[in-house]
């Protein structure tokens, strides 16, 4: 984890495991009418923070924990989303509404389905042959799981940045121009040049704009024709973000974008995400709770079994979670 990360976000205090622990005695918050709390959980909770629980406590997920009222429009409306990988039930009946132009963080222990959820928002799960998706995902009111959906258009609107930087083995310029060229928005091929309608100038403008937006322009403007694989990890990841911006998406999905980076590069990416949220809807998966607390407006917590347990304003989720399991998780008792 990036304890050493310089915290750049100032409007929201960074939280560490210890501070939450100190603020809220775990026993006190436990609802009295919770019938399913096991003794094992009680024991560990009572003994203090040095223990790890063997797993999660049993508790009934309540509907109101997942309700979150926000102002403005919902970008995504997900209803009863189930995803199976073969016999594995990766997501169970997830319903969530994601607001526009904000940062939504998805947190949870590994294997809880948060990446699966993210990938079902732009149908990247279609790549996995054994995956089966039931339920409904609407973007701006339009169902994306129905016949006749144009995947090209969907993925243009919903861009994605992956866990480890994956630039194409091409030049920096070609990396940025790749999407628009493939979608026919920019033509620079030999045929276009022959017909005298090459958009090289427009392409270069676009490349600069995207790189500036991704805070990379200053570092690479003198070597746009170099192979992108020669950049450092952090630069590669920002290049991937710039590449994602080049097709003018409405939503940017990020799957642990900083997990493979060092603290300084992480800080840059986090700054960038904050800027992006003014113009784009950002949904970010992270296993780093401090990161989620720093950068997100609202947080959804997935726990084992692919369940959405709690969803709400980030401050509320981190400071005053409804669910005991969520509290255990964010205080570091398991996960």
């Amino acid at each position: 984890m990036s304890e050493t990360t310089p915290t750049t976000k100032t409007d929201r205090p960074a939280k560490t495991d210890q501070s939450t622990e100190a603020d809220q005695p775990t026993e006190a918050d436990q609802p009295a009418n919770e019938p399913d709390v096991t003794t094992a959980a009680d024991a560990t909770n009572g003994d203090g923070a040095t223990h790890t629980t063997a797993g999660e406590t049993d508790e009934q997920v309540r509907e109101e924990w997942r309700e979150y009222d926000f102002e403005g429009m919902a970008k995504f409306a997900v209803e009863d989303l189930d995803v199976h990988y073969g016999d594995d039930h990766a997501l169970q009946g997830v319903s969530i509404e994601i607001p526009e132009n904000s940062v939504t963080a998805l947190i949870g222990p590994s294997g809880c389905g948060k990446s699966t959820f993210l990938r079902s928002l732009n149908r990247m799960n279609d790549r996995i042959k054994s995956a089966r998706v039931d339920g409904s995902v609407r973007i701006d009111g339009q169902e994306i799981y129905q016949d006749g959906v144009n995947l090209v258009e969907l993925r243009k609107r919903v861009g994605m940045v992956f866990q480890s930087p994956n630039p194409f083995p091409k030049s920096i310029r070609e990396n940025i121009a790749y999407g628009p060229e493939k979608h026919g928005d920019i033509e620079t091929g030999p045929l276009a040049r022959l017909l005298g309608r090459s958009d090289a100038a427009a392409r270069d403008r676009l490349v600069e704009e995207c790189l500036r937006d991704a805070a990379l322009w200053e570092e690479v403007n003198d070597r746009l024709d170099d192979n992108a694989l020669g950049l450092s990890g952090g630069q590669q990841q920002r290049l991937c973000i710039a590449r994602c911006l080049s097709v003018d998406p409405e939503v940017i999905l990020m799957d642990e974008p900083a997990s493979a980076l060092d603290p300084i590069a992480t800080a840059k990416i986090e700054d960038l995400i904050e800027q992006l949220s003014e113009e784009y809807t950002v949904v970010i998966v992270t296993h780093n709770m401090q990161q989620a607390a720093r950068i997100s407006d609202q947080t959804a917590v997935f726990l084992t079994g692919g369940e959405l347990v709690e969803y709400g304003d980030t401050d509320q989720v981190f400071e005053d979670p409804h669910s005991e399991r969520v509290e255990d998780y964010i205080t570091g008792k398991f996960g």
Partner: peptide
């Protein structure tokens, strides 16, 4: 940016 072409999401 280059989002000149907007085609309907559902054909």
């Amino acid at each position: 940016m280059a989002g000149a072409t907007r085609t309907p999401l559902v054909r």
